[in-house]
Amino acid sequence: MSQINYRTINVDALDPESSANFPMESLLPATLPQAASASDAASAAAQVRQMLRGGDPEGALRTVLDTAPLGGDDRAKEVHLATVIDVLQGIRQGEMTRILEGVCSGDGGAERADCLMKYLYKGMSSAAPGSGTQTPKKPVSPQDTGFSQIQARNLGEGGGGQQMSVLLSWHERLVEIAGTGSIVRVMTDRRTV
């Protein structure tokens, strides 16, 4: 009889009725697109950067939001996040409102607005580039809710400050167009970017 420390047993994991075992994949809609790989994201990035250089920032933003790898793996999502942030940083302050209005109108405009909001929050939550190695995030909540609570905040110091201020001014303008509903949907939507 070996010593079993019953206090350390995670009883929630053994209880099929426990809410800790809630199947999170049941919240993904059936319309989720095929999983994209990192190389797909990279080729989309090349196409978007081409458009950005060619002087079509609105088309670039539209394309980058339409090709978001909602069903992709973490690597693809990271590559795509970098592309989105590049596009956002490549658009001048004065043009933001005009471009946003273009991107968020028409067919699928509301989805693009929600998608952009997801990227803004993801961009703000991820550590600033150049502030050392990106530590792998440890989920602290029992379920992986997608929102890590303990994490080095980007406090706007050093290299990250620039990116943060760009994201914040995009956020301000996007809320003007898409409203608070868009922020709420970032929290509920399980199709993470």
Binding site: T188, D189, R190
Partner: peptide, 8 residues
């Protein structure tokens, strides 16, 4: 029924 954005 489940919609795309899946809220409570």
């Amino acid at each position: 029924y489940l919609n795309d954005t899946a809220g409570w």
